[in-house]
Design a protein around this nucleic acid. Structure first.
Lengths: 206, 206
DNA sequence: GTCTATAAGGTGATAGAC
DNA sequence: GTCTATCACCTTATAGAC
């Protein structure tokens, strides 16, 4: 027990530093020197632990992606009301995004340069939306919600949640004339407003 | 009149080539050599016409951005029904995005690295959402739509329209298990489905 | 205006001492 | 394991001939 709790071994320090720099600058924009500085170590050590920039990036991408998708599907499990599940999902997800606002943009941008990477990661993670599809179709059958393609509903919820975060500079500048305060207020309101909007769109009220 | 119609002068050829490469690779990922090759000219000529990579990028970004925002606001003018305006906006916008699927991601990603650039461009373009805000507030007053923050409604429409395009690899891989056909079908359906969803969420039906 | 050649500096990666 | 020094290559940018 040489290290104190707050200290980390070199491998971990490197990955943390790489996460920060890659997320901020992207694969092409990141510099190995900057990652080394951020980790407080020498550049040569990066190559000692992780052979190349590409390899280090692959590990970082996988780590970041895994931390951001898996537990979300569980939010749709359980015996609660379907509308409650939507409310809970949006609330939890937006709080997660609020703490890591640059991650969705990072993932979306870097997938574009190398879609195969994502495919293999997803295969390994065994992600499956089918249970959520089934729940939605059940609700349609029970006539609690209107007829809608389950994939459409899922995409809509994700779009309403993620877009204001990834497009922050655009939204903040154009819609709120640059006001950080207004932007943040909007984000806070959306934690409940998105579910309200979605439910209002699909609920049957006759 | 030395050039035929299909040919372009060198400046234009450069900007076209730069647009293509910058949109595809981003500022950091683009190479001046690749732009020169794409334009069918020598690398030195790029610097002859546009002093630096940064300067060339600035011109390209401004061109691309201007071509993508301005005429959209006009879609909300006119005497038509408010719901018709939403339907028209989404339909026109999605057709535009379908033809240039990489542009939203390009804009969003590159703004992140340099928000000041956007601010000055927008200032120069004199974009103003106020008329659209006013229209929405009118509708609320007329009780044709439910109480909603106008900025929330605008953000929702943009989110539902843009997200599936910028996050194509993510959506296609996770929701449609990689199927290009299913993805394209979804996009085609959304040209009408988004407006239907939005209208269903805000319309007052009593 | 357009080219070839080359400068000047950056970048990923390795060698070798400790 | 960690460092310094350095290689080999790439990239932007410029000089100078035509």
């Amino acid at each position: 027990m040489v290290n104190r709790m707050t200290e980390k071994n070199t491998e971990e320090k490197i990955v943390r530093a790489a996460e920060k720099v890659f997320i901020e600058k992207g694969l092409a924009g990141a510099r190995m020197q900057e990652i080394a500085d951020e980790a407080g170590i020498n550049k040569a050590l990066l190559h000692y632990y992780y052979r190349s920039k590409e390899k280090l990036f692959g590990i970082v991408f996988q780590t970041v992606f895994k931390g951001f998708v898996p537990n979300l599907l569980k939010l749709f499990e359980g015996p609660e009301d379907f509308f409650t599940k939507i409310e809970r999902f949006v609330f939890v997800y937006l709080n997660l995004l609020e703490k890591n606002p640059n991650i969705p943009g990072f993932i979306i941008h870097e997938i574009g340069n190398n879609p195969e990477r994502l495919v293999s990661i997803i295969r390994a993670m065994d992600i499956n939306l089918q249970p959520v599809f089934d729940i939605i179709e059940d609700e349609i059958e029970k006539k609690t919600i209107k007829q809608i393609d389950p994939s459409e509903l899922i995409i809509n919820i994700l779009a309403l949640s993620i877009f204001p975060i990834v497009a922050k500079p655009l939204v903040q500048t154009i819609v709120f004339k640059g006001s950080e305060k207004d932007y943040k207020e909007m984000l806070e309101k959306r934690k409940t407003a998105i579910a309200r909007f979605v439910i209002s769109a699909i609920k049957i009220t006759d």
